[in-house]
Computed example of a mutant assay.
Amino acid sequence: MAVTPNTDAAFLREVDEELRRDQLAGAWERYGRLAIIALVVALALFGGYLLWRNHEQSVSGAKAETLQKVYDGIAAKTPGADKPLADLATAGEPGYRALAKFTQADLLLQKNDLAGAAKIFAAIAADTGVGQPFRDLALIRQTSAEFDGLKPDVVVARLRDLARPENPWFGSAGELVAMAYLRMNKPDLAGPLFAQIARNNDVPDTIRQRAVQMTGMLGIDAVDQVEDKKAK
């Protein structure tokens, strides 16, 4: 009687391994080239980013040097030193743009061109690309330049939110608001605000000194309290 042959396990394993090799080879044919292409594209993009960042840093450094030369030229009263400000005032970087415009406005103030300076300050205040603290400062500078021609209630409406002790521009904004209150014949509002400014150690000394003088004129004694703060 013939015996049924046993399944050759080794042969089956060899066939299975060969099938897997064929599958791997097929997968490489299908996906391997795509993987290489994807890697090349990724490396190209990364290299492009590095080149772009290096270019941006180079451009930024050049603008910083240009701005410094402008400042040096203005300090030395070199004719035409402010000409590069026109290009810097349209820069893509908001920091350089704002600094250039602030400088332009300050130069106009030196020429007593209050309207021209106020217009530039207003442009900075409206520039949403610029940091809020600098926009707030521009609004204060604009209001200061326009102060004599503004109705006092307009000054208060503009700067009321900035005339708070927790705001970094409290001294400058508070002084203008307090002066507006005086023009509105409201010393009861102006006096306490001047007193707050006089007692605030974070306010620049020149503004505090003016506030002390104003509180004295209004019959509010802020001097002793300021001295007490210094002693502490």
Rank of each mutant, 00 (worst) to 15 (best):
P152T: 11
R158M: 07
Y71P: 02
G92Y: 11
Q68W: 13
V130K: 04
T78H: 02
M179C: 03
A91D: 15
T78N: 03
R160W: 04
N112G: 01
D72M: 06
R164I: 01
A157D: 15
A123S: 11
E56F: 07
L99M: 11
A76E: 10
S60I: 07
R97F: 10
A163D: 01
I140A: 12
L176A: 02
A115Q: 12
A125T: 10
V70A: 02
Q68N: 13
L99G: 01
R135M: 06
D113F: 01
Q142I: 06
I120S: 11
A115K: 15
S172F: 04
A163T: 01
Q68T: 14
G174W: 00
G80S: 09
R164D: 12
R141T: 06
K63W: 14
A145R: 01
N167P: 08
F147V: 02
I120P: 09
A100V: 10
E93L: 07
D127R: 03
A178H: 08
V154A: 14
L114M: 12
L139R: 14
Q57C: 00
G129F: 12
G80Y: 09
A117K: 06
G149S: 10
I140N: 07
F170S: 05
K119R: 10
T128N: 07
N112A: 15
L159I: 09
D148K: 11
A173Y: 00
P79N: 08
I124Q: 05
K111Y: 00
N54W: 10
E146S: 15
D136I: 00
G116A: 02
T128R: 10
A89G: 06
L176M: 04
A163L: 03
L99I: 14
L85C: 02
M179S: 14
T90C: 01
A91I: 08
L137W: 15
W169M: 03
N112C: 03
G92S: 13
R164P: 02
A157H: 13
G92Q: 12
R158S: 08
A100G: 07
L150H: 06
V59C: 01
D148L: 10
G149Y: 02
A89Q: 06
K77I: 00
A122C: 02
D136C: 00
D148P: 01
A173R: 00
A122S: 14
T128L: 09
